[in-house]
Design a binder for these strands. Structure first.
Lengths: 245, 245
DNA sequence: TCAATCCGTATGTCCGGACAATCGGACCGC
DNA sequence: GCGGTCCGATTGTCCGGACATACGGATTGA
């Protein structure tokens, strides 16, 4: 198959990462077809002038992403699955933009309020202490799609309404130097209350998809707590799970 | 801190895995408190009589699980997050059993049918070709909680109704030597039809939580396709996401 | 013909070392 | 007091090698 692989040792990009990117690209545009063997690690290392641990590190990163499967005594092969989008901690805004939807955001509320018990517990702050509260309506094609209510601990970020309408909350946090680490999510469903129905353009009692999420940064601090409601006719959660071995 | 760590070189369990398990246990029952440093890798390796790569491999596996965070120039520390359950490809049955719910299963249908277009596409088989169809009702505390309809490609597994009522589908597949690899899931909501309401003990038009999933084994073959509906008052999806770096 | 065994091959694990990049605090000069 | 610089500490990357282990096919035997 003679894959066109090469590494640039003068680049600051780690060698294993360069190799991983090239392999991923080869898989993506079909140079490496599903099921095909990757060639053994020793020979691959020799061909590229790399050591075997470096090659293994590159391959391992793709195995972790679910693109490759290793079999002892057999080799490493490309996974067949058609859909290979991994599950990431992403924002609704990014999801929609990636789908080419060009989402619009309307900020309904952007203020500071005393933390209710549930919010205080989620964010790990004292009850009744000040927290930011942001309520937003997300629209696609001029129609409401989601109502989002988020709480942020004070002093983390200054929330500009203009910026909130132009981009997503996660992107603002990342831009402020916050390293997102993990999030705990609960997805459920319930009937719309009158107020929710009004906001989303549904009938009262209509089914709504609900999501509650607490996001943590790399130090373990909670940086965001939010309760969202979605119109199930216009949005559903879609993701891929991997088995951890 | 003087953690009580040790490895058994005569064990067939890999050294890095032994170390990872001990560290995870120490975190779990509080010997390693959130935020505490883990001590540098070199010294840790020396203390255990291991090489640094081995220690790094153990630490890395816990970083991948979201338990630890590494900081160059600083050290490795335990993440603060309270909830550390990772997102796994798990079955409803396992989830419930882990929560101590002792779920009951009632098999409504267990037969072979010609594949409809949607099923054929999901499983990668020809339309109208034979596939297994299993319909089950999952109950907790005597009350219906979920209605599940699953399709399996032929010849993969012989589905015994008795076994299906005693355990979960995933567990049967694993027992049959199938290595589960990944799954693509869609979670949404909609109003219950008359038939669904009847089955689940809800009113017609009541909100239902829906899940559609295709599961793949490690060769990339689809091994299961299912559409499930849940009573939102009795079940919601809960999981933790990690940022891939 | 079929089953058990052998063997080549590829990944899995582990070692010991080297240098680079980055973080944080200490030190120093202004 | 304040800011910049230096430096120790720690992880990040990379090397080259060694042996163990498991898979699959070929060979061998019944």
């Amino acid at each position: 198959m003679a894959l066109d692989l090469s590494v640039d040792r003068s680049s600051p990009v780690p060698l294993y990462f360069q190799l991983a990117q090239q392999l991923e690209a080869s898989i993506e545009h079909g140079a490496l077809t599903p099921g095909s063997l990757l060639g053994n690690e020793i020979e691959l290392a020799a061909r590229l002038g790399l050591s075997r641990p470096t090659v293994r590190q590159a391959i391992q990163s793709l195995v972790d992403k679910g693109l490759l499967v290793r079999r002892r005594g057999v080799g490493t092969q490309v996974v067949h699955s058609k859909v290979r989008r991994p599950l990431e901690l992403s924002s609704l805004f990014d999801d929609l933009e990636a789908a080419g939807q060009r989402p619009a955001t309307k900020v309904l509320v952007n203020t500071v309020v005393p933390a209710a018990a549930e919010v205080a517990a989620a964010l790990g702050v004292a009850e009744e202490s000040d927290v930011h509260r942001v309520e937003r309506l997300r629209l696609t094609h001029g129609e409401p799609m989601a109502y989002m209510c988020n709480y942020l601990p004070p002093g983390l970020l200054d929330l500009d309404t203009g910026q909130l309408e132009a981009t997503g909350l996660y992107r603002l946090m990342r831009a402020a130097g916050i390293t997102l680490h993990s999030a705990r999510q609960t997805i459920g469903a319930r009937a719309a209350t009158d107020g929710e129905a009004e906001r989303l353009g549904e009938d009262a009692g209509a089914p709504l998809l609900t999501m509650e999420r607490t996001t943590f940064d790399d130090t373990g601090r909670a940086v965001e707590f939010g309760t969202h409601t979605y119109r199930p006719s216009r949005y559903s959660f879609e993701f891929q799970l991997l088995v951890r071995s």
